[in-house]
């Protein structure tokens, strides 16, 4: 039995809500945004695990908290056998090299005052990976080749404003790859890019998954992209994973009403495709004081009394497919 590379256990991240002056006079009660609320999953070596959901469901916060870029409220993250949340900073540092992140917006995640060489070599300096300047140059050049920014000499002294969106995102990937990581959090890496560019960036990520056995946590709101990229996926709604498992099983036989609605809402790029629309009404409520019980119950077409009272736990419905729903009977015949 292979050990997971990364295991997340009962992760929670609550942000305090700062009320206005008058509200603080009226009520002493502290309010919280429960961005991530008891989330557990694992990522196997060489696997792409997807986290999907609508904006505000907590998928980005989960990604950042795992890397301890945001302090967790509670929970554990075990990376390659070591619990990293309780490590002192000096001992955490080697793990920082092994776990990298690619951000959503390449227009904001590159320092406009640094050139490509400085951007990529910053991590090499921090982790002291190069003995000499020439070695450093070689590392940067090979990282640029890995992301197909060739010839490297042409890009190495450019500044971000001299690059297109796709090229910028490649620099972001090179910045992560140069440290030879085992795990990368990819936070919506293509959502800001033009469609014709997207496919090439996704292909690049798949290539490095195959060749260097890099595992990814792939955060996305686009299920069609998730299906293309991921091996397993977790569907999040208001800070909780509501359904998780093998990507094909979840896409073909979704069991949670939210997943089903999400799936039905994805537009299909084929004018002759049959369209079945399960419409759910309303929009995601605010995560401040979310609904009781199952958080989806106010929008759920199958909600019953129990859904308002009790939070459903994840139960296994088939191998590698878990669902958190009280009303699983409704979806059996679909």
């Amino acid at each position: 039995m292979m050990e997971p590379l990364l295991e997340v256990r009962n992760l929670r991240k609550y942000f305090p809500v700062r009320g206005g002056f008058f509200r603080s006079l009226l009520s002493r009660r502290q309010m919280w945004v429960k961005a991530v609320d008891d989330v557990s999953f694992h990522v196997m070596p060489g696997e792409i695990f997807g986290l999907a959901g609508e904006s505000g469901c907590g998928k980005t916060t989960t990604g950042k908290t795992i890397l301890k870029l945001i302090e967790p409220t509670a929970g554990e993250v075990i990376f390659d056998g070591t619990e990293i949340f309780n490590l002192p900073p000096q001992e955490l540092k080697p793990f920082r090299r092994r776990m990298q992140i690619i951000y959503q917006d390449p227009y904001e995640s590159l320092n406009p005052r640094m050139n490509v060489f400085d951007i990529i070599s910053e991590g090499i300096d921090i982790h002291e990976l190069a003995g000499s300047t020439s070695e450093k140059e070689e590392l940067v050049a090979s990282a640029l080749e890995m992301v197909e920014l060739t010839p490297p000499e042409e890009f190495i002294f450019r500044y971000p404003h001299e690059l297109s969106g796709g090229q910028r995102q490649r620099v972001c990937i090179a910045r992560a790859l140069v440290l030879n990581p085992e795990f990368i959090v990819a936070d919506e890496p293509v959502s800001m890019l033009d469609v014709s560019i997207r496919a090439s960036i996704l292909k690049l990520m798949l290539k490095w998954k195959e060749e260097s056995e890099i595992s990814y946590l792939f955060i996305t709101h686009d299920l069609a992209v998730a299906r293309h990229m991921c091996d397993r996926i977790g569907i999040m709604y208001l800070g909780k994973i509501v359904e998780m498992g093998d990507i094909d099983r979840i896409i073909e036989t979704p069991r949670h009403p939210y997943t089903q609605a999400l799936m039905a809402a994805v537009p299909v790029p084929d004018p002759t495709a049959e369209r079945t629309k399960v419409m759910i009404t309303g929009e995601v409520p605010t995560p401040i004081e979310p609904p009781s019980g199952c958080r989806f119950h106010p929008r759920c077409p199958y909600a019953k009394e129990i859904c308002k009272r009790e939070t459903p736990g994840l139960v296994e419905v088939e191998r590698d497919h878990v669902v958190a729903c009280h009303q699983l009977e409704h979806s059996i015949h679909l």
């Binding site: 014709s196 560019i197 090439s200 790029p269």
Partner: peptide
Amino acid sequence: QGLVGSFPSIRGARKEMESIPGSP
């Protein structure tokens, strides 16, 4: 052709996504 091919679909078989080299 490139644009249509570069759209992943949630239905049907998983197929290789095409990409268009270069940028506009």
